[in-house]
Design a protein around this nucleic acid. Structure first.
Lengths: 131, 131
DNA sequence: TGCTATTTACGAATGATTTCGTAGCTAATG
DNA sequence: CATTAGCTACGAAATCATTCGTAAATAGCA
């Protein structure tokens, strides 16, 4: 069982940066963060320390300047969060969520094609399972 | 412009009950809530009062026992929350969210059909707009 | 070596959310 | 009419998230 992951708003911002950039120092993360947000360096540091305590991050402390890395995968986290949202906001109906997402977000043609292709793939699997 | 809606975890539980049951007294809501959760009556009351202050609920105080009703629609709230999740968790990609939702949740055949139908509907609209 | 810059650690202030005790009001009952 | 049961209002405690100041350690450089 993969541990319960429940990042807060701020933690998610940091995870996104780490997922995108790979292992990084606090300073790197902080610089990224500072581009969209106002915050002191020690604030970022503290957050990342807390995240390390919570096992959201791994830390390489072999050099003075520590290097942090996400300890939870983006996939896993997305899955967990979407499941929770389906349960708590969409009465357990994935399709309701999907339609709401498509309706309220204006997906591009490419995105729609991607989804269609994905659905076809599922279809096949379902049929196979039934036969 | 519809006001910013950002219900907390607990507030969402209450909204769900009200969306499902329609206008209700605090006691009714509390009884529902108590089925899945441990909490005192005054806790529920206080939450609903706060939600009223925040304009998340409407209140009919004409009788001694007040009757509350959701002041925000389920649709609107779902849309707002899904948009936020797309932005903060899925890098702005609706299709990524949709696929994650379908992949991690095991939608039924009926649900998949619903989604397919919905996609076809969108397709038509897109074509029309282009012609 | 001694100074400076950068880093981590720590603790505490602030703010938001959740919880609940207590008081006061009102309606129903004996 | 007095008592009781159930309701709302209010305030404050408890908890969690966020922010930051300050100290201590370390590495690089004049």
């Amino acid at each position: 069982m993969t541990s319960k992951v429940k990042p807060t708003e701020s933690e998610l911002e940091i995870l996104n940066i780490l997922w995108h950039n790979g292992p990084s120092t606090v300073r790197k993360v902080h610089e990224e963060l500072a581009m969209t947000k106002e915050a002191g360096y020690t604030t970022t540091l503290k957050l990342m320390q807390i995240m390390h305590d919570k096992k959201l991050l791994k830390r390489d402390a072999s050099s003075k300047t520590h290097v942090f890395e996400a300890a939870v995968s983006q996939q896993q986290t997305q899955g967990q969060m979407i499941r929770k949202m389906i349960d708590t906001v969409f009465n357990g109906s994935a399709s309701q969520l999907v339609m709401q997402a498509l309706g309220s977000h204006k997906a591009s043609k490419e995105e729609l094609d991607e989804i269609r292709a994905y659905l076809e793939g599922m279809e096949k699997k379902t049929k196979k399972a039934k036969s």
